[in-house]
Design a binder for these strands. Sequence first.
DNA 1: TATGGTCAAGGCTACG
DNA 2: CGTAGCCTTGACCATA
Lengths: 622, 622
Amino acid sequence: MATLQSPTLAPANPHNPPPLFINGSTGQVFVSVSPTQHLQQSNGPTAFQISTTTVSSNSSTSSSNSSHSGLGAAAAAMRVENKVRASPQVTSYITYIPTNPVQSHAKDVKLGEFKDENPTVKEFNRPVLSPSQIPKKSYIKTVNENGDTQIEVIPCKVCGDKSSGVHYGVITCEGCKGFFRRSQASNMTYQCPRQKNCTVDRVNRNRCQYCRLKKCVELGMSRDAVKFGRMSKKQREKVEDEVRMHRQIQMADLQHMGGLYSQQQSYQDYSPPSVQCPITMPFEVYPSSVSSTSTGLPFSQTSVHVITQGNTPPPQSYAAPPLQHPLAGAAPLNYPPPQSSLGGAAAPTVGASHNGYGIAQTGAVPSSSGGFPETLIATHGIHPDEPNIVSVYEAHLSRCLQGLDLGQSAASGFFQSFTRAQAWAKFAGELTKIIQAVIEFAKNINGFSCLDQNDQILLLKRNSFDLVLVMLSQFYSVESDSVNIDGAMIPLRQILSQWNAENNEFRLANDIIGCLRDLANFNLTTTEVALFSTLVLVNKDDFTPIQVQFFHGVQQSLMQHLVHRTSDESVLNRLMEFLPRFQELSHFHMHCLNAFRHEQLQSPNPVRLPDLYEELFSETVL
Amino acid sequence: MATLQSPTLAPANPHNPPPLFINGSTGQVFVSVSPTQHLQQSNGPTAFQISTTTVSSNSSTSSSNSSHSGLGAAAAAMRVENKVRASPQVTSYITYIPTNPVQSHAKDVKLGEFKDENPTVKEFNRPVLSPSQIPKKSYIKTVNENGDTQIEVIPCKVCGDKSSGVHYGVITCEGCKGFFRRSQASNMTYQCPRQKNCTVDRVNRNRCQYCRLKKCVELGMSRDAVKFGRMSKKQREKVEDEVRMHRQIQMADLQHMGGLYSQQQSYQDYSPPSVQCPITMPFEVYPSSVSSTSTGLPFSQTSVHVITQGNTPPPQSYAAPPLQHPLAGAAPLNYPPPQSSLGGAAAPTVGASHNGYGIAQTGAVPSSSGGFPETLIATHGIHPDEPNIVSVYEAHLSRCLQGLDLGQSAASGFFQSFTRAQAWAKFAGELTKIIQAVIEFAKNINGFSCLDQNDQILLLKRNSFDLVLVMLSQFYSVESDSVNIDGAMIPLRQILSQWNAENNEFRLANDIIGCLRDLANFNLTTTEVALFSTLVLVNKDDFTPIQVQFFHGVQQSLMQHLVHRTSDESVLNRLMEFLPRFQELSHFHMHCLNAFRHEQLQSPNPVRLPDLYEELFSETVL
DNA sequence: TATGGTCAAGGCTACG
DNA sequence: CGTAGCCTTGACCATA
Ligand SMILES: [Zn+2]
Ligand SMILES: [Zn+2]
Ligand SMILES: [Zn+2]
Ligand SMILES: [Zn+2]
């Protein structure tokens, strides 16, 4: 029962029809819901669907189906891998630029494996003179002083390893690239010895070819993923945004982390996380826009039962793709699809990927999988470290609003004079500042930082906005209906009342204010906010058991504090109801933003929003 | 001993001195006869010499040295390549283009394909499947439409692939361009795993970097090839002529070919010659103007022995570069060198290339290599298809003289009133009409059409005139000493007698008439002429074994017919003696034409000869 | 338009 | 034998 080989993903169980069909001669991949019905994959508006029959399992992982639109699937996939590729290296690398940092050929020998720089190909546009001279052109693959290429800071979408560019339409490492090619080359049939939900990460990627290929395909890898010249300018910008974000996340990872991961070699450019290895996790791709296939919750629902009871849907719904949360069991809240122009479930937009580049051509639905590093669990477990959480919160988040420009400009009717675009720019700018603090906070939460970078990104894309709301709520004054920062009071309601229309932005702002007020009414303590923020941060749609363990641990701590302070056991549940509410607002924010973006396309001088903001809230909905 | 890289062409055998030296920093190429003696290559009148030590080989291909002048080497190189551009694969690929095949993204991913054959030296691979799998490449697309010169119809001079313009002084494809650039960019040393005579064509070009670079250099590629110099008007016209000729050849290639490769998609932009693919072939460059190095014949001389015996030299010799034919073993017949103005072996003229554009700057000696398509051999072989040959002959050649203007204008002393230029124009015009028929004939002979376009051109340049002679002979009346066309009798002798001088043109015409008469005396049947024409068509100086096979096959057919009709076994041999005689006349025709051209340079209103004629008989002697 | 550069595809190959 | 790092190749692009 070892590994069989075949590019066709044969079902582990012969009774189960294979969800994927790969034409051996062309390498073209067909995905079907039924074994007889082939949906030809094309660049056109054809939905890319994979239905995976759920196999009940007594193991720690099981399947959960929820529904996603091919367009803007609401739930972010969470794939927890382990690769804290972090950053120690980047910062410290600087200090090691040998003698002449300017033209040093700093043969950065990535530890362990020798990395030979091809002189012919990569040498050229190294800045000969001043490094301050900013290259006019930013090529994705052009080597920088690090010896790295831009795109390589984005890890492999399949396994999280160091990527080497876009291959078959997806940012992957050399290994996954070669594996996919090989799989397409010969007529073999892979089989999964387990439940077709094996973790695919750097360490385990060779454990199961079936699941690896499955993930490749689901991420949109395709032999004829049209390279079409180079990527378009827009695509490139998107990748660059993602690069920036990864850089940001990698920036100063090393010194924190509770010393758990401190022993990084100091100078290396690439430092695999000290601990690496994932756990399996059901890996589902859902028929687009079909919400009826939900089969169950990933694991013992009872274990999280306490905190998911009594979930009440938020007051409003905006008519959008259904949204489910396995923990909260939130009722589907609908927002309009992010890109209303095309509408329709069977019309995946170009950016149907959760990453900036990759799935665009194929219309594949982004995969979701994840898990905590096995070894981490084995050795330490992911223990919610309450004191650490609180101190991290206090260090990075508690005063995050203080430097904002809101305080100064708020007082008078300053906001009224804004055009819509100006208002968006202002909003995005301030939001980004908060988000930067959020990211710093997140990086120091071990339940987050232990994740694979891709999953970190996914979580940030999913939950950044929510965390901003949490933060804002802490400065919200219920009495004055305003946010008070740096002593300045921002009369949100008042400002809002001066807006001229009942447009979506108005609704968004209004709902946000309402949410802030409701949350502010809880009068949470700093510790409680810290713990709650952590929950918001790591919240996702499908947890692995270990993730639940962490989530639950934080919940327990929060519960204890809340009960101790309020003697009300329902507070936690009521707090947890904010999670779907946040998500609803977050999605509506995305909706408004996308609408604004589309307007901007016609604008002669469009507003440039912050890179981080652009990437986090890129049109490719979570 | 694995892969060595360096742009310097290192000798395959350390004991053999490298014939080429490339200055790594400048990319300048030096060629020497001895390892210590560097002849600096320049644009001036320096001989470009490469002495290749012949290595005896037990393989099907071996080396043969003959002597050529750097100027006008007589023997046309034959390089047969493999290039099944058409191929079933294209069709099947098309069917998989999802929705809209027309604007399909059917990107031709033809990349380097490598394969190892010799473990010690790096050698690249050939396609894993069939060469027919090698993707298309649009030739035709640029052919028509606008009248401006589309240089791209001329295939790459190095490998025969689709060219993309003039690069480093030579018409090359993107691959050879990039390869040459790379080779000049870095300091590497290539090595040939074999005898430095590897075939360089589209399929095999990546198998030996040494030979590829060698060919590049020999064709005159140079980093400082006068680039933007905007070629002279004459060069330009030459290129245009070549373009026109290639167009003519490409014109209606696809529909014939015995339906072997008939399954072309109908709408595609590219319709290559139906069959194309090469085989390796010894690749020699000879010391210029040295005739003593002849080492042997390419392959079993015995196999063609029968037909090459008893070759008697033609009555006259004109004192010219030696001329050898491996099959016929013809005694060197000498004509004056085509361009007598410079004379001398060490003085290559500007047009030393066999192509219209490219080698001008460097004075390199054109290479010669060739072979039949391997896969074609493997799957079908190149079987002489006698019925097809005959029908093709009847369709395209048998009545080729009927539309000529000779019939009308011949009767009276019309020709007498011609000036020399008018006579040439008339002659060239009528000749061209015949040649057009000859080309149509050739395109439908599978032993010809399977060749690479470059080789087709070379063969046409070499043998067109000969074929015209064959055709004319069919209309020659021995009794009346005249050519009878359309009922009109053209009293050649009579016309000739009115010419005023014993100049070269007179000698040429006289010899032609003699040749026509001699051939007409054979009273060949249509079938015999068809077969004989085929032999004349594919005749060349160095055959590959497969080519010999084809040649021999046709010979056998012809032999049977001749013996059956005449019961004389010597007829074939006597017929074969015409081959070198044709060549002699052909070269003398070239000589006269060039002399006429040079006269025309002084003429105020020079005669414009037909494009096809100009190109086929361009000053760059065969 | 020729040049130089980019970078994904895929060949090569050490390694398990 | 599969894997994956390294390398070459060549279609495509930006530039002068
Ligand atoms: Zn990977
Ligand atoms: Zn598996
Ligand atoms: Zn070429
Ligand atoms: Zn070679």
